Amino acid sequence: MTRRTAIVLALVTLVVAVGAGVGVLVLRGDPAGGTASAPPPVTTTKVTRTDLSDSRSLDGTLGFGPERVVKGAGAGVVTRLPKVGDTVVRGTALYWVNDRPVPALFGGTPMFRTLDKPGLVGSDVRILWDNLRALGYHTGSQPTRSKDGTKLPAGQAVLTASLVAAVKKWQQALGTEPTGTIAVGQVAVLTGPVRISAVKALPGDPVAGELLAVTEKVKLVTVPVGATEVGSIKVGAAVAVTLPDGAEIPAKVASISHTVTGGGPDAGAGQGSLPTVNVLVTPVKAADVAKLDAAAVQVLFTTTVHRNVLAVPVGALVALREGGHALQLTDGALVAVETGMFARGLVEVSGAGVTEGLDVVTAA
């Protein structure tokens, strides 16, 4: 072997040795690139059976509700008026005209004529008959037909001799002349027990005009609700009222106004208020609000309830590429589901293989 050949062989051996060394260094010196990372831990939850409810909280005002104006009728001079804060019940004097009391009756029809002739038929007669009965007077029975033989319409009554006799006894108890007749302006018809909220007239004013303003007798909460949303609220529905101190008290929907306020042609463009309807809510226990005369409160309405349904946290839903949703099982398999109500971070689910207690993956 020549000297030149020996040198070449030595160089080749050195290159191979260096290459092998580099290879070993690459394989052992980069564990991050050569070793697979552990899969991240998953969070699981169970499919539960529960009741879901759709609720919303709205601003309300605690007080005695909206005012209603009381107008006098007939002729005469006002001689006495009640005080603000007085309460008026059935059969008691609301105000005085020519030193004669004008008592309050409850109903929905004002006295629009003089009731003086037996045989008169009408809703005003029914108001008189209902109220005297409620006051404990013997009004006798009501016929089913009028004198001409026609059937009495619903909500109407006949001025019978027994009813006239009851009117006389009532007038005598009031200290007025027992004539047995009721003229326009001699009684005031209200929708129910009320509280005097304002006195608009003075003694000496003519009776024909605005005399008083009244509110409900008990405290309630007035809640303006969007006119397009009020249809989901029902009279008698249970609600929860949160007071200024954070206490939550039970209440119920007492009435829903038929009058829409606000709105107009520019309401939807930021140029005015949206149309609303007042919903009146009454606390179940008057003592819960006895110490408050007026306050801003929150009212929680529950509009829809789905009972005994299967539900999971919203984070457990998997959106499918082809549309719809699924739940991911702990082994990675997907189970297609139909979704229902969303409420309180939960969603109603149903579908084949979806059962109570099923373990599914959810977002952490």
Rank of each mutant, 00 (worst) to 15 (best):
T2I: 02
R4W: 10
L9E: 02
L11G: 12
L14S: 10
G19W: 13
V24Q: 12
L25W: 13
L27W: 12
R28T: 14
R28P: 00
G29M: 11
D30N: 15
P40N: 09
P40D: 14
T44E: 11
T45R: 12
V47L: 03
V47Y: 06
R49F: 10
D51S: 15
L52W: 12
L52M: 11
D54Q: 10
S55D: 09
L58V: 03
D59L: 14
T61I: 08
L62R: 08
V70D: 08
A73F: 06
A73C: 01
G74V: 13
A75M: 03
V78E: 03
V84T: 13
G85N: 04
V89H: 07
G91M: 12
W96M: 09
R100W: 05
G108D: 15
P110A: 06
R113G: 02
D116G: 15
D124R: 11
D124E: 15
D124H: 11
L128M: 08
N131M: 06
R133Y: 06
A134G: 04
L135P: 03
G136L: 13
Q142C: 10
K147H: 05
D148C: 04
G149S: 08
K151L: 12
A157L: 08
A161L: 09
K169T: 03
W170M: 07
Q172T: 14
A173Y: 09
A173H: 12
L174M: 15
G175E: 02
I182P: 01
I182A: 04
T191W: 08
G192R: 09
P193T: 02
V194G: 08
G209D: 06
T215E: 12
L220I: 05
S232L: 15
V235W: 05
V239N: 04
A240Q: 09
D245T: 04
G246I: 01
S255Y: 04
T259N: 08
V260G: 01
G263A: 02
A267E: 12
P275L: 08
T276F: 06
V277A: 05
V281P: 02
V281S: 05
V281Q: 08
A286Q: 14
K291N: 14
L292K: 06
D293A: 11
V297C: 11
V299H: 09
T302K: 03
T303Y: 07
V305N: 04
R307T: 13
V312M: 05
V312N: 03
P313G: 01
L317V: 00
L320M: 10
R321V: 02
L327Y: 00
L327V: 00
D331S: 06
E338K: 14
V349A: 01
V349T: 01
S350C: 02
G351C: 05
E356D: 14
A364I: 09
